[in-house]
Design a protein around this nucleic acid. Structure first.
Lengths: 194, 194, 194, 194
DNA sequence: AATGAATGAGGTTTCATTCAT
DNA sequence: CATGAATGAAACCTCATTCAT
């Protein structure tokens, strides 16, 4: 009966906040940010609309928080190591890990994709992600060059297109796209080339 | 004093309908189907909201008509020829033509992409396109097999992922993606392999 | 090829006007004055909306004209004869004729009934009809008195209620109400009493 | 600080819902279902349009609920007793009670009448009411037969027409129709005949 | 921390009416 | 006399957000 400690409250808050965000990702991915209503999210999360506004300032704020937090979670695995140099093994790992992360967060990626397709609406998303993408791009380019590829830039283009396309396809129709076969294939491809 | 002839009316209708659809594609692509309002479309088309409903039964109907008409326009170039067999040259042409069509219809492709990412909302889109995609898939697979590729199925996977990814990237950030370089690269790639 | 004469034009106008009114009565009766749209009427009459406005100033004007004209048509049979005295035979005739007129103009009566149920909307209707009703009421009252009925006023009340109720019922569900049986019954009733 | 209890919310909802329905009956009766606007109802009820939609799914739903609830309220007095046999006294009571109920719910009856005159719009109304009407019709017919009336069927026809007509007249112009005199008269009539 | 009634701006849609032809 | 494209006001409805409790 003793009042909860500050930490307990903090924990409860954090959990409820996560719950709301998880539910929101799902609904946003299914219905679009604009097509989803705050009521739907509150209802599916089992809380009142009022309480949702206790945790997030607005619907847009909720979206921003989702992107912020999910970005962190998703991209943490790819923090480039200190030296900024990518070995062949690290590159293979990067692909494997990347595909795994996507498999585990389909809805987030779906949401992410709908968002990047509306440049005017959301610029938040880009900034973070773009930086990382550039760094990686550079490192992979260097790897390709070191491996004596004829046209490292062109190869980079093909590679990123391949990955991106596979993600889209997988995220859109998970059951129809053989992500595992794709994974072996692309790894086999670069294993030989590098 | 006499009323316009049937042809005159027909012309007016056809032109205005096209105008509305063109404007709508642009706005839908920019803001999402749900994020765009009929008012915005009417305003940008320079007509009253009421008139829009003279031409389309509803916002959803407008979307459907856009998809129907744009699908026709976009996919007509790819009607497989009678024999159902794809030569190496036809395959190269297919890629070239495909990229060109996309360059000329960026907004439609953007819209198409936001739509396929919301499976619950629109099933119209798929049916038409899926058929064609399957036919092509099969023909390309046969070509790869005839060319003695080791794993034609896997190669098809990589190829479609590459194309898809390039489209996404180009459509999303046209200025940043070197579509022409990508085109030469992928053609070069298959020119050697086939 | 000679231009039509003024009379011919006049005839055409009169016919078209009647056509529009007939169609409108039907639709108003079916959908309510408010629920019917000018477009529907024009379409069913096979003319353009614009032309309809050539014949009637407004939707409300169309309604007024319908009521005016139909009232005349409907009530003309009941113009009390000069002397203002109703014989038993005339009374019977009045009932017979009344029922016949209703059978022949179901839709007008339906419309009329929906209108009298909205006192605020239409006052036009009443004025004409009320006068006639009062005159008739008085004459029937006199007839009842001459026939030595105990309570002529009360009998008048019952009679008008009976007629009114039968009309409503018949107009509402023509197939279910045995109007002919009702007719014989009520005539038999007054034949004995008078 | 704590939220209202479930009962409190329940009470608020019930009261407001009743308020809206009461206001709506009045306005529908006065202006027709189609002629009344949701704005008018909200305004007269002193609430926002939005709130009305918190209580009713649509304007049509509001109408249906009114009919449902009012039907219950209105017809509950007439639940035939178990044996299904009507005595002379019960018949007299039925007429008295019926007239009283109508006097107390003029607006509902007005609304009801406008609705039955639009067969295409509302079928809801009929089903409930028709059943009851049939049961009563049968019971009254039996009573008439037991009382050795020459033509019980014809008498039933006259009686229901009389009642119906009186209701219409009273509901349409309450001040002009002497409902009390009608009541005594019709009771006197059947008191002698039965 | 929690509720859901309440608001109001804005969305989609309808329709009487006008007008150039 | 005749057309139907075009308008704009107003209808129905939705939903992010607020607030008393």
């Amino acid at each position: 009966m003793s009042p909860r400690t500050a930490e307990q409250y903090e924990k409860i808050r954090a959990e409820k906040q996560k719950l709301i965000m998880d539910v929101a990702i799902e609904i946003f991915a299914e219905k679009t940010y604009q097509g989803a209503s705050v009521s739907m999210i509150a209802q599916k999360a089992g809380i009142s609309k009022g309480l949702l506004y206790n945790y997030f300032e607005s619907k847009e704020d909720l979206l921003k928080e989702i992107i912020k937090s999910a970005s962190q979670k998703v991209w943490q695995y790819f923090d480039p190591n200190k030296d900024g140099v990518l070995t062949k093994e690290e590159f293979i790992f990067f692909i494997r890990k990347g595909i795994q992360v996507i498999k585990e967060n389909i809805n987030y990626w779906k949401l992410y994709l709908t968002l990047v397709l509306q440049p005017l609406v959301i610029d938040i998303v880009k900034s973070d992600v773009d930086d990382l993408a550039k760094q990686y791009g550079k490192m992979i380019f260097e790897l390709f060059k070191r491996s004596n590829m004829k046209d490292p830039e062109g190869e980079l283009l093909l590679m990123s297109a391949m990955l991106r396309g596979a993600i889209i396809q997988y995220v859109t129709v998970p059951n129809l796209f053989p992500i595992d076969k794709f994974e072996s294939k692309i790894i086999e491809y670069y294993f030989e080339k590098l």
